[in-house]
Design a protein around this nucleic acid. Structure first.
Lengths: 390, 390
DNA sequence: TTGTATGCGTTATCAA
DNA sequence: TTGATAACGCATACAA
């Protein structure tokens, strides 16, 4: 048993923060004698070379250039070489807008999310980016606040963005009105962990009820019965699903849920801290806290400590997601792993598969892949949970 | 003085993590009876309506439609109304590829970064996105690993991405070869916290030497003299700049730097943890640790606790960046605020200003804004630093 | 194997 | 205030 002490001023208190400003020279002018311009701002002096320039230089027609550069058949090896050399000489890069115009696609994949947790967002992005890496597609990020309040606005934003397809993270993935708009405009989409209309679009699911049940069961098995619950944003269907899982675990363990120990957060640290404080003021105090994501769990940990208590000695804490904070928190957080990056990779993969297949043969529904994928969750037991004090 | 205890198994140890898998049904087939297809995968049955359709429906020419929809002059109010109504009826959205082709720009801004810290990345993105919100521009994210090893590869990636401009975060912003390629291809760029060639492109700077000096001075003023230093990735020029600041503070305080107390990390938590462990094995042990970013500082905090010591009672810790982890850590981290989001907003703003100005009049260098902006840093003193034990 | 001519959906020119 | 027509840069029937 390691014992240590903490200085008394180690409390959560924004007001005690001291700030010293460094020198500021906002928008200072350019230093004297610096070059007027490093690059030309659009009004290019020498225009970018086009396929015609390459054709001239290589002494062939533009069609031959096109074939050679796209590694299409029916080009003599010699012509191909000449063309490639000419292209290199002229630093030729095909105009993507022109290609898009004729190909009728932009090679742009959108990613929409609302979750404010940095680690969740980055995992989401990295999954999609990993899949897009060697492809022609590029990723456009389109965060959007309060989708539940204005789904049509997001819909218009997506329509205007010139995307070939879009990956929808929660809670946008569950907005009926949004899906209806996308359907109407034939903008393909993949949905990450949706909870309704599971037959629409590409669906990457995880059994969040079972996952919620797993963490809750873990705390119950340790012997906790007074468990505070910090819900996420109610506009996310996941909140209700995870709660349903908690309920099942409690029912299974024959433990009654005390409604005064259920508080609602919004997946952010700050709100999580406040509602956790509220939980800690209840009597008798809960001996454990179940938070619906890791950020709120970490906030609860801070709130517990700011009460002079310790985790998990006095109070156990469990999160959800297994995002980066779960591992960098101290003590490390017990949580349920949601394979966000894999789901995002998978969503992007299937979306691209759908797009590319639709291109080749017009036969819809004859996809080589399943429109739905289920991903496993994992209960990850770390150091933030322990049996209750006796 | 609050005293509390921690269970003995609360140590940083990935191996002790227990994992239970939930049910997995990866790539399960579609449920029976689900609709074959919700959307058509590209081979659209009814093509998207074009400007011609709108012109027909409104009984005007396409030029009039163009004028009306773009709120251009020389259109009768009556015609404008008819056109807008027709467009709404047909759910018309202009084809961005066609617009790009003629406008000779894509309305795509790229954002390149390498930093693995989620909170840094998200701040960077959010700054750019905030500026782009109501504009026609969209943000393409282009993370790239090991720029220092292969700048030309990143250059080609950027050329191929069809961008109008690009925001370069460290360390790409300091890659000469990359800048040369961008110059050559006339792809405008804005650089965030560069440390070399300050006259090239748009530059958003912060005085990192002074910032480094500020944190170091803070620890020295508290009375620390044995201070461990955790450097960031050497390929980031910021690492050397911040270290230079540390040196100045030490010199000013007439404290000699012990080279055995300088270790090199890479801005990640994991490596930060390892090198911090190394520092803690030195004798006599340092009484404080200066980390070059917050993630490594938090890692150092974990390492300190895993030694059975406490922060800041036994060892003080300071970070750099004031990213989200600094505030959600416990105790909250003393650090230097780097206004990443503001710099990113500013970079994007000036980049767009440059692009839009270059459009209107070809006069380069006659910009309405400065090509360089300096942002202030702030020393943020929180709970992770205290005077050394006596 | 190669080249010519046409179209993709906009905006811009310039005459009506 | 309008509209026919020409770009924009590329890809592709179709002809050679």
């Amino acid at each position: 048993m390691t014992t240590f002490t903490v200085a008394p001023d180690n409390v959560y208190c924004g007001a005690s923060t001291q700030v010293k400003r460094g020198a500021s020279q906002l928008a200072q002018g350019p230093p004297p004698g610096y070059p007027i311009s490093t690059f030309s701002g659009g009004a290019a002096i020498s225009k970018r070379s086009t396929i015609i320039d390459v054709a001239h230089l290589a002494g062939v027609s533009i069609k031959t250039v096109s074939r050679a550069l796209n590694d299409a058949p029916h080009v003599s090896a010699e012509a191909r070489e000449r063309v490639k050399a000419a292209a290199a000489t002229l630093d030729y890069h095909p105009n993507i807008a022109a290609q898009s115009l004729i190909a009728r696609r932009s090679f742009l994949i959108g990613l929409t999310y609302e979750r404010p947790s940095p680690s969740y967002v980055v995992e989401l992005q990295n999954g999609a980016l990993a899949r897009l890496e060697e492809s022609r597609y590029r990723l456009v990020v389109l965060p959007f606040r309060n989708v539940a309040d204005r789904p049509a606005e997001l819909g218009r934003l997506l329509m205007r963005a010139g995307l070939d397809g879009v990956v929808l993270a929660p809670p946008a993935c569950d907005q009926d009105e949004l899906l209806a708009m996308l359907d109407k405009h034939r903008l393909p989409y993949a949905r990450i962990t949706p909870h309704s209309a599971m037959d629409r679009g590409i669906v990457l699911a995880m059994d969040e009820v079972a996952a919620g049940e797993a963490v809750a069961a873990h705390l119950l098995e340790l012997g906790h019965t007074r468990i505070g619950i910090v819900l996420g944003d109610p506009s996310h269907a996941a909140s209700a699903a995870r709660m349903e899982g908690y309920r099942r675990a409690f029912a299974e363990a024959k433990v009654v849920i005390d409604d005064r120990l259920i508080v609602t957060g919004d997946f952010t640290y700050d709100v999580g801290y406040k509602v956790a404080e509220h939980l800690l003021r209840q009597t008798p105090q809960p001996t454990a806290i179940l938070a619906q994501n890791d950020d709120m769990a970490v906030a609860a940990m801070a709130a517990v400590r700011d009460c002079g208590l310790s985790v998990p000695h006095d109070i156990s804490i469990a999160g959800f997601d297994d995002s980066e904070v779960a591992r960098t928190a101290w003590p490390q957080l017990t949580t349920v792993r949601q394979p966000v990056m894999k789901m995002s990779w998978d969503a992007t993969d299937r979306l691209i598969g759908w797009l590319d297949a639709g291109r080749k043969d017009g036969s819809e529904g004859e996809m080589a892949f399943a429109r739905r994928g289920n991903h496993p969750h994992e209960l990850v037991v770390r150091a933030s949970t322990a049996p209750p004090k006796v």
